Simulated assay, not measured.
Amino acid sequence: MSRPVPWIPVVLYGAVLLGGVYYAVIGPGPGARTAGYVALLGALIALDRREWRVTPGVVFALRVVLLCGVAVLDESGLSRVLFVLVPFLAFFAYGPTVAIGLGIGCVAALAGAFTLSVPHWQVRAEYIGDLLMFALGVVLALAMAAVAVREQQARARLEGTLAQVAELSAARERNRLAREIHDSLGHHLTAIGIQLEKAEAFASLDPESSAQAVSHARWSANRALEEVRASVRTLGPESESEPAGLSRALADLVHHLDGGSRRITLRTSGVERRPLLVLYRAAQEGLTNACRHSAATDIRVDIAYDERGARLEVADNGVGFDPADEGFGLSGLRERVRLAEGTLAVDSSSDGTVLTIEVPW
Rank of each mutant, 00 (worst) to 15 (best):
I104S: 09
G105V: 07
G105W: 03
G105K: 04
C106E: 10
V107K: 02
A108N: 04
A109L: 10
A109N: 02
A109D: 00
A109T: 03
L110R: 10
L110T: 07
A111I: 05
A111N: 06
A111M: 09
A111T: 06
A111Q: 07
G112V: 00
G112C: 02
G112W: 01
A113I: 09
F114N: 06
F114P: 00
F114S: 08
T115W: 00
L116E: 07
L116A: 15
V118L: 15
V118W: 12
P119I: 07
P119N: 02
H120C: 06
H120Q: 10
Q122N: 06
Q122D: 05
Q122A: 07
V123D: 01
R124I: 12
R124S: 06
R124D: 13
A125S: 07
A125L: 11
A125P: 03
A125F: 11
E126V: 15
E126A: 14
Y127A: 09
I128S: 07
I128H: 02
G129Y: 11
G129V: 12
D130Y: 13
D130P: 09
D130A: 15
D130F: 09
L131S: 03
L132I: 10
F134R: 04
A135K: 00
A135G: 03
A135I: 00
A135M: 02
A135S: 05
A135R: 00
A135Q: 00
L136C: 04
G137N: 02
G137I: 01
G137T: 01
V138W: 00
V139F: 10
V139G: 13
L140F: 11
A141L: 06
A141I: 03
L142R: 12
L142Y: 07
A143R: 14
M144Q: 13
M144S: 12
